[in-house]
């Protein structure tokens, strides 16, 4: 490359960099898509930052449970009692309360796996160094939604048989027959399309919006402190405080979304196996 051209290119990069430092850029979808691939680049198994965060989060969660429960005793130690407390929350608050004694025991392993998996991947959104939720890309929530979908259909078919399940879900008893013309399509769309998609979308968008809010707060702090002049520098105090408050809020959202995802899965299973429908 001739030297003059090289210099022109260099000048371009400098002005671009200066433009990025001087103006405020609102965070967008680029925070999640088109990230540089770290391992296996170019293959379908390419691992970027979010996928790596997912793998690490799940590995850590498994390691913690293994450490806590590897030598389970009748009188629990410190690690074991924390693990038991967490599992008991899923058992009592979700499985037993929604599904009842019999079905709750059957589906507890699945519900606990969903709860702790979602929680591990949500909480990375506020852990320094990771700073992005593993569930902030559509892949993972969609897979979890699909698991819930397969499980509640399986549970219903196992309980009532294929014919009984679909008849019970699509033609609920106790309504005069002309109503079915309207009711059946609505029920079909609601149960077999909206349910799994809404599960996935709710989780995805909660984590995505939370991340965008945090990025907005902290990049605004950076902008006000270094690029704005005079009086406007004071705004950085407010945005920094906002960032901290939203970090606390995200902690709550991470737990709450894991809880809601598991709760809704349990409710859908309950509606499939219940006798009224």
């Amino acid at each position: 490359m001739p030297r003059s051209q090289e210099r022109a290119l260099h000048a371009d990069t400098v002005t671009l960099a200066a433009g990025e430092g001087g103006e405020f850029h609102a965070p967008g979808i680029g925070e999640f898509l088109g990230l540089p691939e770290l391992f296996f680049a170019g293959t379908p198994f390419a691992i970027d930052r979010i996928v790596m965060v997912r793998i690490i989060a799940i590995a850590l969660m498994l390691l913690l449970f293994w450490l806590g429960l590897r030598r389970a005793r009748r009188v629990p130690g410190r690690g074991q009692s924390i693990a038991e407390l967490a599992l008991d929350f899923v058992n009592v608050q979700i499985a037993d309360q929604v599904l009842g004694e019999k079905h709750g025991k059957r589906f507890l392993p699945l519900l606990a796996a969903i709860f702790f998996g979602v929680f591990a991947m949500n909480i990375t959104g506020i852990i320094p160094g990771a700073n992005i939720a593993g569930t902030a890309l559509i892949g993972m929530p969609l897979l979890l939604g699909l698991v819930a979908y397969v499980v509640f259909i399986y549970a219903g078919i196992k309980e009532h048989g294929a014919g009984g399940f679909f008849r019970g879900q699509l033609f609920p008893s106790g309504v005069p027959w002309p109503i079915y013309i309207i009711l059946t399509p609505v029920e079909f769309i609601n149960i077999f399309i909206v349910r799994p998609l809404s599960l996935a979308l709710r989780l995805l968008l909660n984590m995505m919006v939370g991340h965008l809010l945090l990025v907005l707060c902290f990049s605004a702090t950076h902008f006000f402190l270094f690029s704005a002049d005079g009086f406007f520098k004071l705004f950085s105090i407010g945005t920094l405080a906002g960032g901290f408050i939203f970090t606390l809020f995200e902690m709550l959202v991470a737990v709450l979304q894991a809880y809601i995802f598991t709760l809704l899965t349990a409710v859908y299973i309950q509606q499939s196996v219940s006798h009224e429908h």
Binding site: L201, L205, L256, I260
Partner: peptide
């Protein structure tokens, strides 16, 4: 306890509309 569970269920359904509003921008 039971009311709280039901409350979170109700909130989850109502809140979804707000999040669909966020998604439509993208």
């Amino acid at each position: 306890g039971r009311l709280q569970t039901t409350m979170f269920l109700g909130i989850a359904f109502a809140e979804l509309l707000g999040f669909i509003g966020v998604a439509t921008f993208f």
